[in-house]
């Protein structure tokens, strides 16, 4: 897929809803403690932290997309190799980590609880759980469901 700006944004939002949120929900239930908030109806405990990280990832990504598109203009093929996609996804995660480190989420809980090595390890595992299926989807699984997606620069919908 050779992305356009709108295509990048729409694909990111698509992956956020179809992979990011479900994976994060499972992950957050898995790491929850009895003190964690309770899901309505089902009554299971879940941790809010992975959702906050996921939202940060989405925002950082959406903000960086125009930057990628700008650099894409200098490429003759106007393409974006999978390797770049892979590399910059990790860069985005590192940016999110740096933001958390600088206190982006300090308003949600006590900084002493937040900035523990265990939590940062958790962020990495959570990121891997979201990133790997998302990347595989980009490699081709989206096409199975959305046949027009690859021709539309990553946008959804009909032609």
């Amino acid at each position: 897929m050779l992305p356009t700006l709108k295509g990048r944004w729409l694909t990111r939002i698509l992956l956020f809803f179809w992979i990011g949120l479900p994976v994060t929900l499972v992950f957050s239930i898995y790491i929850a403690t009895p003190e964690s908030p309770v899901l309505p109806l089902i009554g299971w405990n879940y941790d809010t932290l992975p959702f906050q990280i996921l939202f940060l990832l989405l925002i950082v990504g959406l903000l960086l997309d125009p930057v990628y598109i700008h650099f894409q203009q200098y490429r003759w093929e106007r393409d974006w190799p999978f390797a770049f996609q892979f590399f910059f996804s990790i860069v985005e995660f590192l940016i999110v980590l740096a933001l958390v480190w600088r206190g982006a989420l300090d308003f949600t809980r006590s900084p002493l609880d937040l900035h523990t090595p265990e939590n940062y390890l958790l962020f990495a595992v959570h990121f891997a759980c979201v990133f790997i299926p998302s990347f595989l989807a980009l490699l081709g699984f989206i096409q199975i469901f959305m046949i027009r997606w690859r021709f539309k620069g990553g946008e959804w919908g009909r032609m």
Binding site: M1, L2, T4, G7, E77, R78, D79, R150, K152, G153
Partner: peptide
């Protein structure tokens, strides 16, 4: 030099658009 007979974005992406 070019990988294919047109730049890649001619098949979907910015140039096609």
């Amino acid at each position: 030099n070019q990988a294919f007979n047109w730049p890649k974005a001619c098949w979907g992406g910015e140039i096609l658009r």
